[in-house]
Design a protein around this nucleic acid. Structure first.
Lengths: 223, 223
DNA sequence: CGGCATCCGTGACGATACTG
DNA sequence: CAGTATCGTCACGGATGCCG
């Protein structure tokens, strides 16, 4: 909560009091992909300044959105991670990602790019296709790889992460940049991308089967 | 979009470029309840300053979130209303309202209060109970009345509004402040409130029936 | 009177430098 | 590595003025 509150007895205004400050929700976006140290957070938030990052982390920790944890002996320093309440911001970021998809357009030359920034938009679009299946999915784009966790998971488990899943994956997706953009802005459904072959799913488990099933049933219905 | 962009090729960052400025989403919150003139907007946004309101309205209009319309002869001046794209921010505000419910707590003495600020939290909680029924519902709290539109509606139709529905309603809800708060923070489901009788539904149409049905089936299942 | 524009003080932000 | 210190700039909040 910033020094300046809206002072309105309104759930929306209260949320904005807590995470409405500049950079706050982008810090949450980064931490949804797992705990990070200060410096790593700094490098994945191009444009933030060191004092603002430190100030936001302090505010978010005080408000119970973020917690700070000493790293075990192999590592040095400490890491920041989302609390359960912080992780509950996922629907907020999902809604923001869905709304912003159509206005994403082409990347400006000045834009920073990180592959895992597509994780939340894709998660919002792919979640309906997973059915009740749970599992981890590696997603490979030309610019890099990240992983998504579909279905319910124990509280505190990151819903996505940078790079391939360190614990192995139940399915692997491969898609090109254009397909990823069309999925993100809603002009292409995952089902259509599967049918067209610009999105491929590999893997043997029930999660991979469930994803593929949607393409085949959609094709069958269409014929 | 503020003068300072995040310059990140990320759907979330792009959304925040457009509506992440202070007061922007609260302006959208107000306009979701229907078109308003500058002065009315000003009085329902306690704490905003005149120049900031004017500046935000200019930015939102330029970005296609808000449009300005001359009022027909009976009225004077002009009114601001959401574009279709602006109305698509409803899921964002719904998610913000759901997250902020638990932290709403008691109202501080300095808090401004408006009855219709509970419209979006209640809409997010009641929408699942309406099933596929569509219609308008008047909601009466001790502090005032507002109305909600359930189900799909033509683009541009406000999803809620101040006071009772001017076009008549398909159902009427009455609840006290404590029940409203419990619904907003998620500690009480609408089904339980119906069963307990602290939330009453009157009306004869299918929407009212659908709402009441949820309470009786839940009771039946529980026995 | 509605709809802003202007002025001004304060504080937030951004960039860089520096320290434990 | 993980911030704090410093400083210039700009956005915000409050008040007032202008103009149809």
């Amino acid at each position: 909560m910033p020094r300046r509150s809206y002072d309105q007895y309104c759930a929306i205004a209260r949320t904005l009091d807590t995470v409405g400050d500049r950079w706050s929700l982008l810090i949450v976006r980064e931490l949804l992909a797992g705990p990070l140290r200060y410096t790593d957070l700094f490098t994945d938030l191009p444009g933030i300044s060191t004092d603002v990052l430190a100030s936001r982390l302090r505010d978010l920790e005080r408000d119970g959105v973020v917690s700070r944890r000493r790293l075990p002996p192999p590592g040095t320093g400490s890491a920041y991670e989302l609390t359960e309440r912080g992780g509950a911001l996922l629907p907020v970021l999902g809604a923001l990602a869905v709304w912003g998809g159509p206005s994403l357009g082409a990347s400006a030359p000045t834009d920073a790019v990180r592959a895992h920034w597509f994780a939340l938009p894709l998660l919002a679009r792919l979640a309906p296709l997973a059915g009740d299946e749970r599992g981890v999915m590696d997603v490979t784009l030309p610019d890099g790889t990240f992983h998504l966790r579909l279905g319910d998971a124990p509280p505190g488990t990151p819903v996505c992460g940078r790079g391939p899943s360190p614990t192995g994956s139940d399915a692997s997706l491969t898609l090109d940049t254009a397909t990823c953009l069309s999925l993100a802005d809603g002009t292409l459904t995952a089902t259509d991308a599967l049918t067209a072959g610009t999105l491929t799913v590999t893997g043997e488990g029930p999660l991979a089967e469930s994803l593929r099933k949607h393409a085949t049933t959609a094709t069958a219905v269409r014929n």
